[in-house]
């Protein structure tokens, strides 16, 4: 009852940003591990990195960047009152998210097929640095994939809200926050991509 009476969009965005900081730090723990392992097992780490499929990684980067674009356009569209365009863009974002996950699935399954997964027989025979690389790779991309799912669910909900008229030209903070979340997912991938796929 009192909840909607005191609407404060800037406050809502601030809350979202603060939440994003804690998401950033969540991945931060993994980046600490990455940096340390890279410095202690440099060679083996890089050797393992070369086994990842950089073409698929690049395609996924492009997919995610584009999904961020459509999400950003959706926000501008709602602000301009063009809900139809916003909906089309959000559907686009969701489709690209799905595409990202499918590519991820292909990548993972080919690696798992070769026994390269935590606890896998092939991985156990690799040098320590390579084991560390693959373990980190699975955790980081796994956690990121989970965030893609959550972000997708959030955007899906917003699509529903737009269609019901709950999100519109003069009340769009929900869309704004969901889009912020989606951009964070993209932002983190921007760092994961070179660190894992382009290691030399």
């Amino acid at each position: 009852m009192s909840v909607d009476a005191h609407r404060d969009d800037t406050g809502a965005r601030m809350g979202m940003w603060l939440f994003l900081f804690s998401e950033l730090l969540l991945f931060g723990g993994l980046f600490v591990l990455y940096a340390v392992t890279l410095s202690t097992h440099g060679e083996a780490f890089a050797a393992a990195g070369r086994e990842l499929n950089w073409v698929l990684g690049t395609i996924n980067t492009l997919v995610l960047l584009t999904s961020s674009l459509t999400a950003a356009i959706a926000l501008s569209a709602v602000q301009k009152g063009n809900s139809a365009l916003a909906l089309r863009c959000l559907w686009g974002t969701l489709a690209l998210a799905l595409c990202f996950l499918v590519i991820k699935y292909v990548e993972w399954s080919s690696k798992i097929h070769h026994g390269l997964y935590p606890g896998g027989a092939q991985l156990a025979e690799r040098p320590e640095g390579q084991m560390a690389f693959f373990n980190l790779y699975y955790v980081t991309t796994g956690l990121h994939g989970l965030h893609v799912l959550i972000g997708g669910a959030l955007l899906g909900w917003v699509v529903l809200k737009i269609r019901q008229g709950g999100v519109h030209r003069s009340n769009f903070v929900l869309l704004e926050n969901s889009v912020l979340y989606w951009h964070l997912v993209d932002l983190i991938w921007i760092f994961i991509f070179p660190l894992y796929y382009l290691m030399l």
Binding site: L38, S68, L69, A71, A72, L180, H183, L184, D186, L187, I190, F191, F193, P194, L195, L198, M199, L200
Partner: peptide, 22 residues
């Protein structure tokens, strides 16, 4: 240099996303 170059580019990409998309 590779890793630093990759990081530098990632940072500039991140900055773009932050400043404009976000």
């Amino acid at each position: 240099l590779n890793i630093w170059a990759a990081l530098a580019i990632a940072c500039s990409k991140g900055t773009l996303v932050l400043l404009f998309f976000m």
